[in-house]
């Protein structure tokens, strides 16, 4: 599938015209069904891209195309129906008075019939491990639990594009792994589902189809993880590290121990070193 579903063309953006540009001539495209990680230092413009993409911010300069259609005021509502975003701060997006209401909110807005809605709410609350909390109010939940609820609310909507803006930052490692698996399963079931993850986790970025790295509002690298993480020094200069497998391969290479290029995970690397 090589059909671009998202295209950014020469986007310049600032919150205030007199302010410095937050995004500078940003160009990239994402194909349908791709899993893309947006990485970059704090303040590099990652979240601004996400907000532009779902029409929470308006752009003046450049073009954003969704599925080939230029995003503008008139078609915003229609295009937005296919895009969902989960933000980092779950308190900003908890709308319902209970977990159940909150997961149902988006479905209600889409006029899903009641019976189907109830079954979706139950299904997705279960998938994020919140099925025993349906009647709880937000103040009774931890940050991580609220994040799970926000994720369920978006995943239940049968969207074409899903954006996670550090949506699992308050979960423990096991929780992060659970959500990652859930997204993986959904993508497997629906290969057309495009998934964009804004993350600081280089291990996650290494698993993506494509990594877009931002630096001070510009697209700095835009390539496969393999190629992006060849730029060790440049990434280091903006405070980003390397995935473990890349780092260990580099460090061994510096001492003359060459690892087979096809080795892409630590299981294979361990096998290789024990041969």
């Amino acid at each position: 599938m090589n059909k671009p579903i998202i295209e950014f063309k020469n986007i310049n953006f600032s919150y205030d015209q007199e302010d410095e540009l937050i995004l500078k001539n940003v160009c990239f495209s994402i194909n349908e069904g791709q899993y893309v990680c947006l990485i970059g230092h704090n303040g590099s413009g990652k979240s601004t891209i996400a907000k532009l993409l779902c029409g929470l911010l308006n752009y003046q300069d450049g073009e954003i195309l969704i599925n080939g259609i230029k995003l503008n005021d008139e078609n915003l509502e229609a295009l937005r129906k296919d895009i969902g975003i989960v933000f980092q701060n779950p308190d900003n997006q908890f709308i319902g008075s209970t977990v159940e209401d909150d997961i149902a909110f988006g479905l209600e807005n889409r006029c899903i019939e009641r019976e189907k809605m109830i079954s979706l709410v139950h299904d997705f609350s279960k998938r994020v491990g919140m099925e025993n909390f349906l009647s709880k109010q937000p103040e009774e939940l931890s940050g991580g639990q609220k994040q799970r609820v926000a994720i369920a609310g978006i995943l239940a909507l049968d969207l074409k594009i899903i954006i996670f803006d550090e949506a699992t930052s308050m979960l423990d490692p096991q929780g992060v792994e659970e959500i990652r698996k859930l997204v993986f399963d959904m993508r497997k079931k629906d290969p057309k589902l495009t998934f964009i993850s804004i993350t600081h986790d280089m291990e996650e970025a290494y698993l993506a189809d494509k990594v877009i790295c931002l630096k001070d509002g510009e697209v700095f690298l835009n390539d496969t993880p393999e190629n992006v993480f060849k730029h060790e020094e440049e990434l280091k200069s903006i405070g980003l590290g390397l995935p473990f497998i890349v780092k260990i391969k580099n460090d061994l290479l510096k001492h003359g121990i060459k690892i087979d290029e096809n080795i892409k995970n630590i299981e294979d690397l361990a096998g290789f070193l024990c041969k």
Binding site: P173, E203, I266, L269, A270, C274
Partner: peptide
């Protein structure tokens, strides 16, 4: 305890299981 295991620890275990000398 569902804690994050640092990758070097995971890797150490893998080496051990593979019979690293």
């Amino acid at each position: 305890y569902s804690l994050e295991v640092p990758l070097f620890i995971k890797f150490k275990k893998l080496l051990k299981n593979n019979g690293f000398e």
